[in-house]
Design a protein around this nucleic acid. Structure first.
Length: 107
DNA sequence: CCACTGACTACTT
DNA sequence: CAAGTAGCCAGTG
């Protein structure tokens, strides 16, 4: 099995509610890695195709899609729009609105 | 196990 | 604002 970090990342991604997005850095931080954004990207690549991860809900820190237009860019954008997320003219989403904040531990 | 690869991020120029 | 540099670390072959 993979490291706890990896499983946490996968779990977090799968926990992202519809209509919300999460940045690589945010996910990594939630998984315990303040700078594990790159690992998140790797996990999305490696795991999303093996697991059913809503990879389209993961974007970069600037609220933009990291994929190239020749890649899954349009697909991801379409998926996000279908969830109610609107893009700016710069193809950016308003993280102040769509950035998801994980459910706090109701202790 | 080693080396390479990356859907990143923050800082600097 | 745009492009370049350094740090970071796990999956894959």
């Amino acid at each position: 099995m993979m490291l706890p970090f990896t499983r946490d990342v996968l779990c977090i991604i799968k926990d992202i509610p519809k209509g919300k997005v999460l940045t690589y850095g945010r996910i990594a931080a939630l998984a315990g890695k303040s700078n594990g954004a790159r690992q998140v990207s790797r996990l999305l690549h490696s795991m999303s195709k093996k697991y059913d991860l809503p990879w389209h809900r993961v974007i970069n820190a600037k609220g933009k899609i990291s994929l190239k237009p020749a890649n899954g860019f349009e697909l991801q954008k379409a998926l996000l729009e279908s969830e109610g997320i609107c893009f700016s003219k710069q193809d950016t989403v308003d993280l102040n609105i769509y950035l998801w904040y994980p459910a706090p531990a109701t202790t």
